[in-house]
Amino acid sequence: MRTTLEDLYYGNITPNEQQMTPDSELEKAVARVTKYENQLMEQLEEIDQETLTKLIRSQHEINSITATENFILGFRLGVRIMAECMDDNDGDIRTGG
């Protein structure tokens, strides 16, 4: 536990920064998106490229917000599960509660 707390204090825990596993489904999907984005950019006029870039940036922002919210919700659920596990008076018939 102390190691985790020290890592958190010193900024060594960064759940939003993860390396993609080589040849994973995620890496393959990212490669496809990049390929199609580049193909589309080549076909568009400059003004349309700017619009596409804005769309992509906006989608990245949505993805970031969603990832943050999902992390928080998952963390809260984990804490609730831990709290419930620690409750000695939870009605378990084996303990007489």
Score class of each variant (00 low, 15 high):
Arg2Asn: 08
Arg2Lys: 13
Arg2Met: 05
Arg2Trp: 08
Thr3Trp: 03
Thr3Arg: 13
Thr4Ser: 04
Thr4Met: 08
Glu6Phe: 08
Asp7Ser: 11
Asp7Cys: 08
Asp7Met: 13
Leu8Lys: 05
Leu8Asn: 04
Tyr9Phe: 14
Gly11Phe: 08
Ile13Tyr: 01
Thr14Arg: 13
Thr14Ala: 09
Thr14Pro: 00
Thr14Lys: 11
Pro15Gly: 00
Pro15Cys: 02
Glu17Thr: 08
Glu17Phe: 07
Gln18Tyr: 05
Gln18Ala: 10
Gln18Ser: 10
Gln18Thr: 09
Met20Phe: 15
Met20Gln: 14
Met20Gly: 06
Asp23His: 11
Asp23Lys: 05
Ser24Gln: 10
Glu25Pro: 01
Glu25Tyr: 04
Leu26Val: 13
Glu27Ala: 13
Glu27Val: 02
Glu27Asp: 13
Lys28Gln: 15
Ala29Ile: 03
Ala29Glu: 12
Arg32Gly: 01
Arg32Thr: 12
Arg32Trp: 05
Val33Lys: 03
Thr34Cys: 03
Tyr36Ser: 01
Tyr36Gln: 07
Tyr36Arg: 00
Glu37Val: 01
Glu37Tyr: 05
Asn38Thr: 06
Asn38Ala: 09
Asn38Asp: 08
Asn38Gln: 09
Gln39His: 07
Gln39Met: 10
Gln39Ala: 09
Leu40His: 00
Leu40Ile: 02
Met41Arg: 12
Glu42Pro: 00
Glu42Met: 12
Gln43Glu: 13
Leu44Asp: 03
Glu46Pro: 02
Glu46Ile: 07
Glu46Gly: 00
Ile47Thr: 11
Gln49Ala: 01
Gln49Ile: 00
Gln49Arg: 14
Glu50Tyr: 07
Thr51Leu: 12
Thr51Ile: 09
Thr51Ser: 06
Leu52Tyr: 01
Thr53Lys: 12
Thr53Arg: 10
Thr53Glu: 04
Lys54Ala: 12
Lys54Arg: 06
Arg57Glu: 10
Ser58Cys: 00
Ser58Gln: 02
Ser58His: 01
Gln59Tyr: 06
His60Trp: 02
His60Asp: 03
His60Glu: 05
Glu61Asn: 15
Ile62Gln: 02
Ile62Thr: 06
Ser64Thr: 12
Ser64Lys: 14
Ser64Asn: 10
Ala67Cys: 02
Asn70Glu: 15
Asn70Leu: 15
Phe71Ala: 06
Phe71Glu: 05
Ile72Arg: 10
Leu73Val: 12
Gly74Lys: 05
Gly74Asn: 15
Gly74Trp: 04
Phe75Lys: 02
Arg76Trp: 04
Leu77Phe: 09
Gly78Lys: 02
Val79Pro: 04
Arg80Asn: 07
Met82Glu: 14
Met82Thr: 13
Met82Ala: 15
Ala83Asp: 09
Ala83Cys: 07
Ala83Met: 10
Ala83Trp: 07
Glu84Cys: 04
Glu84Lys: 09
Asn89Gln: 12
Asn89Met: 08
Asp90Ile: 10
Asp90Cys: 12
Gly91Ser: 01
Gly91Val: 02
Gly91Thr: 05
Ile93Cys: 02
Thr95Arg: 12
Thr95Gln: 05
Gly96Trp: 02
Gly96Cys: 06
Gly97Cys: 14
Gly97His: 15
Gly97Gln: 14
